[in-house]
């Protein structure tokens, strides 16, 4: 079976059907739904990467080198912005955030999250195309980079990215550790002790 992209009216009809496992909350406005896509916005929690005295991270071993005996090493700070507030992203700054929308993916749909072109042209990039698996429920974590030359103000609830939907067939989805999460989660690494 090839990958199929659902059409706009199918997406809208499924989102409006309360008995359908596929839902996005808050329900997107019709104009936010495209052919196979739904615009998504950012929430109020931002996690800027901390530039600290930690020498390095060994990704393969999932551990931080030279961090002493601490068990959890914070590589990211957490900033909660008021819904009417602003988070300023400095040039070359990397942050984690999460979508404001809470997604509930059915067994027959998967998704990829990609930057919206307006933001991309200003240098704000969703650094990886986050994969949203069938059966996932939660607010996906976004890795966002300001690749531009000027600071950019980010406001909660602003559409910054879009979910690109595709057909799937996964009767028994695997439950990820981020299932039902409503905030961004950094990768888990431990200190070497």
């Amino acid at each position: 079976m090839g990958v199929a992209i659902p059409n706009r009216s199918d997406i809208i009809n499924r989102l409006r059907d309360e008995d359908d496992e596929f839902s996005i909350s808050p329900m997107p406005l019709t104009r936010s739904v495209g052919s196979g896509t739904v615009d998504l916005s950012i929430g109020t929690v931002f996690m800027p990467a901390e530039r600290s005295a930690i020498p390095s991270v060994r990704i393969e071993e999932k551990r931080v080198v030279g961090a002493g005996n601490s068990i959890d090493v914070p590589l990211f700070a957490e900033v909660r912005v008021h819904p009417k507030g602003t988070f300023v992203m400095q040039p070359r700054q990397f942050i984690l955030t999460a979508t404001f929308e809470y997604l509930s993916m059915p067994h027959d749909l998967a998704g990829l999250i990609q930057s919206r072109s307006t933001f991309g042209r200003m240098g704000i990039i969703s650094a990886t195309a986050a994969y949203v698996a069938p059966g996932f429920k939660g607010c996906p974590t976004l890795e966002v980079l300001n690749a531009g030359e000027v600071p950019i103000e980010l406001n909660p609830y602003r559409h910054i990215c879009q979910l690109v939907l595709m057909s799937a067939d996964e009767p028994e989805p695997k439950i990820s550790r981020y299932h039902l999460s409503t905030r961004p989660w950094p990768a888990r690494v431990a200190a070497d002790s």
């Binding site: 409006r16 909350s25 808050p26 329900m27 809470y102 509930s104 429920k137």
Partner: peptide, 9 residues
């Protein structure tokens, strides 16, 4: 069912 409940249809 793992859903949020901020709005209803």
């Amino acid at each position: 069912g793992g859903h949020v409940i901020g709005e209803v249809y």
